[in-house]
């Protein structure tokens, strides 16, 4: 039994989420291979070869894979994946985009966003926005799975010495094209990989006030997130959203500022080790999950916090 892990990457760097997915593969048990489908992505293949526990890296380097268009990448994964018992990808927007297409090409069901491995065919996954946890068993010949990173510790990025093999497959399906992207540029850590996350909600009142959170975040080496309410109100862009339909985070410390704590937000952060809530409404539901709650006006508390750090 061998497991194929699909690498998450930017063509130049390996995505941290891949390390959590490799850990999920280890929990299933078996030889672990990593597929890097990209364009000019040799450095990613080299990085993948160093992940602890990986025995082989398959590198499919083709211009058609440059932007991870599912119409081009899914047929490759389905073709390469035929010889494996499991195909795993991170439940990033990229993994979520491509993997169901792979599953349907292989004519198998997919199991989405697993948070635990019970056995090689049985997994736990959240349903109803995390209000229930289902244990599901699959009898499919090839198990196509996406992995929620917060459910698994990252595998060591160094220590492995896998062989890298080129895969000469792939073509442009010719039905889709990349037009452009607007990526948020930030010197701060990535939300899903940060040890500390500071998030703002509707209580921030506007986008300019997020500068206050940025200053606190810089002192803590933290990433800055937001609730859906703050994103929908146009304070900050969508890629900052933490919640069921945004990013799922589980840092060591999560500081929720001016966030009431709607169920869908809690679904995105309740696995954090320590949760701090700062809100002037003492009845806000966020306090029911917070380890430390401070009932205060955030416009007083945040500058004070910045000064105290």
């Amino acid at each position: 039994m061998a497991i194929l892990v699909i690498a998450e990457h930017t063509n130049v760097a390996l995505g941290a989420a891949t390390l959590n997915t490799v850990s999920a593969a280890k929990a299933i048990g078996g030889e672990i291979h990593v597929l890097v489908a990209g364009a000019g992505s040799a450095a990613v293949a080299e990085a993948a070869a160093k992940i602890d526990g990986v025995s082989k890296v398959l590198s499919a380097d083709n211009a058609a894979f440059a932007h991870q268009l599912p119409e081009n990448v899914a047929p490759l994964i389905a073709e390469v994946g035929k010889g494996y018992s499991h195909i795993l990808a991170s439940a990033t927007t990229n993994g979520k985009n491509i993997m169901p297409r792979v599953a349907a090409l292989l004519d198998v069901d997919q199991i989405s966003e697993i948070i635990a491995v019970e056995s090689a065919d049985t997994f736990k996954r959240p349903i109803y926005a995390g209000n229930a946890i289902a244990t599901v068993q699959s009898s499919a010949a090839i198990k196509v799975i996406t992995v929620r990173g917060t459910g698994f510790d990252a595998a060591a990025a160094e220590g492995g010495s896998a062989t890298v093999e080129a895969v000469a497959a792939g073509s442009d399906a010719g039905i889709s094209a990349f037009v452009g992207e607007e990526l948020a540029k930030s010197d701060r850590p990535e939300l899903t990989a940060a040890k500390v996350v500071v998030s703002g909600g509707r209580g921030m009142q506007n986008g300019e006030n997020f500068a206050m959170l940025n200053r606190v975040a810089d002192k803590l080496g933290a990433a800055v997130g937001a609730s859906r309410a703050a994103v929908d109100a146009g304070f900050v862009p969508n890629d900052m959203q933490v919640g069921q339909t945004g990013k799922i985070v589980a840092p060591d410390l999560y500081i929720a500022v001016g966030i009431s704590g709607a169920i869908q937000h809690l679904a995105g952060m309740k696995d954090s080790k320590v949760i701090v809530a700062i809100n002037k409404d003492e009845d806000a539901p966020i306090f029911q999950v917070a380890d430390y709650g401070l009932v205060a006006d955030l416009f007083d508390a945040i500058p004070e916090l910045e000064a105290a750090l």
Binding site: V136, E282, V289
Partner: peptide, 23 residues
């Protein structure tokens, strides 16, 4: 289908911690 749901459980609950008085 090849997928069977074996069981559905409530998620582990977090209990509220403490309120602090100041920053």
């Amino acid at each position: 289908s090849t997928v069977t749901t074996l069981k559905v459980e409530a998620p582990a609950t977090r209990s509220a911690g403490i309120k602090v008085k100041s920053v």
